[in-house]
Amino acid sequence: MEASPLVLVVAVLQAAVRSGTPILFVCIGEIYAERSGVLNVGLEGLMLVGAIAGFSVGYSVGNPVVGVIAAAIAGALFSLIHAYVTITLRADQIVSGLTLTILGTGISGFFGKPMIGQVGPGFDQIAIPGLSSIPILGQVLFRQDAMVYLSYLLVPIAWWVMYKTHLGLAIRSVGENPATADSLGVSVTKVRYGCVLFGGAMAGLGGAYLSLAYTTMWIEQMSGGRGWITLALVIFAAWNPARAMLGAYLFGGADALQLRVQAVGIEIPTYFLMMLPYVLTITILVLASRASMRRRIGAPAALGLPYAREER
C-alpha cells in the first residue's frame, strides 16, 4: 500500500497547519505584548501552565472546551506576575520572563503529578461540510480540529484590531513612544497590562493545544522548547499577526516535511530541512540587529523599555 505523491503533499500541508497552530497562538499573544513594548520571554513557562490547566480542568469536567477556557485564564493570571513586575515595578523584562519560565516549569510539574498517565478528553478532527471537499486546499485547511478553526478566527481579528481600530493604534503607539501616547491621554499602564495578559492567555491556549488536541495527555515539560521558537517567530513575522500565520505554518511545515521525507524513504539530508526555519530566523535576526533594518521590519521602538511618567 503506497500512498500517491498528491496524498502525501496534502498530508504534509495538513501537518504543517497542525504543528504550526500551537506556536501560532503563542505568537499572536506575544506580538500584542511586544507591540505594547513588553517583551515576555517566559512563554515556555506560560505554555506549560496552560497545558496543565487545560488538561486537568478538561479531564476533571470531561470537556475539552472548558479546559481551553481554563488554560487561557490560567495563562493570563500567570502572566499577571510579569505585568506587575515589569510594568508596575519597572523591573527588567528579560529577568522577569526567565523567572516565569522557571516558575511555570515548577508549578506545572507540581500540579501535574496526579495527571500523569491519565488520558483526557480531546479535540478530534472535524471536516467542515462543503469547505472540506475543495480539492487540496479544503483538505489541508478544513479537516482539522476545533482549536485550529479557532486560530483561523483569531488571526484576522488580531490583525484587524491591531491595524484598523483605535485600540490597535493605542497599543502600537505605546510600544513606539509611550511618552507621546501618554500625553495624548492613552494609559500606558492599562494598555501594557492588557496586552501582557492577552499574551498570557494566548500562550495558555498554545499550551492547551499540546495537551488537548495534539495529544490528549499531560507529561512534564511537554512544550519541548516551542516557547523559545515563538520568540524567533515573532521577529520572523515582523510583529504582524497575519505574517505570524505564514511563519508558524512554515516552521511547522519544515518539520512535518522532513518527517514525511523520511517516512517515504527518500534519501536527503534531513538535518538540513530541520535547521531551515532556524537559519531563516537567524538571518532575520542578523538583519534586524541593524538599526535601520530594525525600523524597516517594524520592531517596536520602546520594546523592552519600562515606562515611568517622571522620566519623560
Binding site: A3, L8, A15, Y214, M222, G224, A263, M274
Partner: peptide, 23 residues
C-alpha cells in the same frame, strides 16, 4: 522516521502520523 528526540510528544505524534500516511 528519526525524530532526534527522546521527549517531545508533539513531534513524536507527528512522526507517527507521517508513518501512518505512508500506509
Amino acid at each position: 522516521v528519526w525524530t532526534q528526540t527522546w521527549y517531545d510528544p508533539a513531534k513524536e505524534r507527528e512522526a507517527a502520523e507521517s508513518l501512518l500516511d505512508v500506509g
